[in-house]
Amino acid sequence: MAAALLAAAAGWSYVTYPAIGQLTYDLGAGVESRLYGLHKEVVTVEGIPITLYRSAGKGPAIVMVHGFSADKDVWARFARHFSGQYQVIIPDLPGHGETGFKPEWDYSIAAQTRRIAALMDQLHVQQAHIIGNSMGGFITAQFAVSYPQRTLSAGLVDPAGLPSPHPSEMRVMLSKGQNPFVFDTRAGFYRFYPMTMASPPFMPGYVLDAVADRYIARREQLTQIFSESHKETDLPVRLREVRLPIMLMWGKEDRLIDVSSVPVWQAALPQAKVRVLDGIGHMPMVETPTLSAELYQRFLNNL
């Protein structure tokens, strides 16, 4: 009888362990966002119900755009510094977070950029400061090129979209046919996660395992989104047309997009205010949200 009870308890723990981790993560993110003045909304854009965070600030709008495989929650601790003064808007891009995925949706940079403009229309926001990380930085730069009249400024945080003279660790892996974002075991996630930040914020192991399981469950979706979002665009040609205020922020220890990209962006955007952060990886707004927010606020104050 004792052996049977132990076996049942072990089986129950094995089955419920990932669910507990996912519940903990979701509850924690939900509580934090509300404490930071961010309220969840769903807005339909091009037939897609996009879930987003929005604050009630009365100042200009700031649209914060997450990177590939991430979601709106990566901006929450950064956004808390702006949600009282500004109207902060943080969408889950199609294919990500609570907005979800459908194989027939278009995940190209052009499509995601167009949806940001359409989302602003739905929210009756004519102009906004746009800031994005990684793929979100690519979208931000493309937005500045495509909708300059609607862009108050562009914040580029370790952005994709232009080449790196020195290949990053991710680029080396991709050249060997290995995508660090796509894996089928938790061990794959634990190899990938340290690539995103030099010193990731603490999360309990059971929560990290739950995040790993979500990545594993999404591997086919991520493969499609990655392929469609990495098609060539006209950004390298048209970026020099941008005359808007630009801030370029980069973590010096970025293992996904090498810091050697900074001079390439500077050459295309000589007006950019540049900050390279020592000891920081690919996601400064997560790894050091207060410092990143202070730097961005100074940039906004000087416009």
Rank of each mutant, 00 (worst) to 15 (best):
R243S: 14
E169F: 11
D121V: 05
A187M: 03
I130W: 06
P165Y: 01
A160G: 14
G177L: 04
A212C: 01
T140V: 00
P180I: 11
Q224I: 11
E169D: 15
P165S: 08
A187I: 07
D121T: 11
E232Q: 14
E220A: 13
G161R: 01
E232S: 13
T151L: 02
A128S: 14
M120I: 06
R214L: 12
L152R: 02
A160W: 13
Y190L: 05
Q224C: 13
E169P: 00
A160F: 13
D184Y: 15
V172M: 12
I216W: 06
Y193N: 03
R243K: 15
Q178E: 13
R240S: 15
A154L: 09
V211M: 12
V182M: 07
P180E: 02
E169M: 14
Y147G: 05
N133D: 07
H124S: 15
F202Q: 06
G177N: 07
F138K: 04
R171M: 10
P236Y: 00
V242E: 08
S164T: 13
S227P: 08
G188F: 07
T223E: 15
A217G: 08
P194S: 04
L123N: 04
P201I: 09
R171P: 01
D213Q: 11
Q142M: 04
P194K: 09
N133Q: 03
